[in-house]
């Protein structure tokens, strides 16, 4: 049995340690497709977060009456229902955004982040924890989308949330708003995250070695190096 995380950890794990996009590499399709601007990223993130929270709440509440064999089918129908609601509401109230995000709202259904959280978390935990988990994962997803959208928008169209931030003299890099720019930006961001975690790991490693040296257990260092 794994140690229970505190409520706060349950919430924050989705933002950094298990960030769905940057660490788990889930839900990349909408991430790459809609992030030509920060506002698109925000809208997509909020839509997916809403679906994630609602499905997690519902599924964790009825988890005991769903038979194991049909759980995936039930999850998919529940998720698809919430996605359709979001799609209809956006079409009715935010037609411009709905047009910009195009078919990627319906595609939230197959966003692996959402189905993944139902299978791995909501179907095994009570609604309270499932809610925290969903908010955390949703925030992590939304934040990553905003970061990606911001980088691409500033360099690709000189603006941030539609407001011009770079001077006219800066020639916008067209590649950033092309599909290729999405791949390159995300690739570089992931490398940055990797670089950070590799460095952190090495620091931890070195601090352990230093500790062993202090207590005079040199033989343990050799053991560590072998591993």
């Amino acid at each position: 049995m794994k140690k229970q995380l505190s409520s706060w950890q349950e919430f924050t794990k989705g933002i950094w340690k298990n960030n769905p996009i940057m660490v788990q590499l889930l839900g990349l399709c909408p991430t790459l497709a809609v992030t030509v601007s920060a506002i698109n990223g925000l809208a997509m993130g909020l839509a997916a977060t809403f679906v994630l929270i609602m499905s997690s709440l519902l599924i964790s509440s009825i988890r005991k009456i769903i038979p194991g064999q049909v759980r995936i089918a039930s999850f998919i129908v529940i998720i698809a229902t919430f996605v359709t609601i979001v799609d209809l509401v956006m079409k009715a109230k935010f037609p411009a955004l709905s047009k910009a995000l195009g078919p990627f709202i319906p595609l939230i259904v197959v966003n692996c982040v959402i189905l993944g959280r139902q299978e791995a978390f909501a179907s095994k935990n009570n609604p309270g924890r499932a809610f925290l988990d969903a908010i955390g994962m949703g925030s992590g997803f939304t934040l990553s989308l905003i970061v990606l959208g911001t980088i691409r928008e500033i360099i690709g169209s000189r603006s941030f949330f539609g407001i011009k931030v770079l001077p006219e003299g800066f020639e916008p890099w067209l590649i950033m708003i092309l599909p290729a720019g999405a791949f390159l930006t995300l690739g570089l961001l992931l490398a940055l995250v990797n670089y950070y975690s590799i460095r952190k790991e090495r620091e931890e490693h070195e601090s352990i070695i230093a500790h062993y040296k202090r207590v005079g257990r040199e033989e343990l260092i050799e053991e560590l190096k072998v591993n």
Binding site: T81, T84, L88, V89, K91, A92, K93
Partner: peptide, 12 residues
């Protein structure tokens, strides 16, 4: 969905 659609359709 039928309910939500009934509400959203006139707007759309």
């Amino acid at each position: 969905l039928a309910t939500v659609d009934g509400w959203a359709d006139p707007f759309i």
